[in-house]
Nucleic acid binder design. Structure first.
Length: 105
DNA sequence: CGAATGACTCCTT
DNA sequence: CAAGGAGCCATTC
């Protein structure tokens, strides 16, 4: 009988779900927390294929530069920024200015 | 099945 | 700070 091993996708979902409102994390950090160190790209791929209408706080995931990775002007970018601002995240010149979730300098 | 792709990141110049 | 390049690897062609 097979044990239900969580797929990478499921592990990433689980980690993203833990990001508190008003805070953000990065693809690389998500990868690390999901046991996928150095696979930030894979996390991005998983995010891009999230089911429509997901309850995951996908908008709290940004890149290591503190910017939204979706193309500027795209629907996704606009929505992500709107949701973050709604949670109190401040943007300065396209950069999210707020402490990261589990970010260590 | 090999090649291209991508919501990435780090290091060097 | 910007640009170039290497590393990474599941998914899609």
């Amino acid at each position: 009988m097979k044990s239900n091993e969580p797929s990478n996708e499921e592990r990433v979902w689980q980690v993203v779900a833990l990001i508190p409102s008003g805070q953000v994390s990065t693809y690389g950090e998500i990868a690390r927390m999901a046991g996928l160190e150095r696979r930030a790209r894979q996390v991005g791929g998983i995010m891009s294929r999230l089911p429509q209408g997901t309850s995951l706080p996908w908008h709290r995931v940004i890149n290591a530069s503190g910017r939204i990775s979706l193309p500027v002007g795209s629907h996704g970018h606009t929505e992500q920024r709107r949701r973050l601002q709604e949670e109190g995240v401040v943007f300065i010149n396209g950069c999210a200015s707020l402490r990261r979730y589990r970010w260590h300098p």
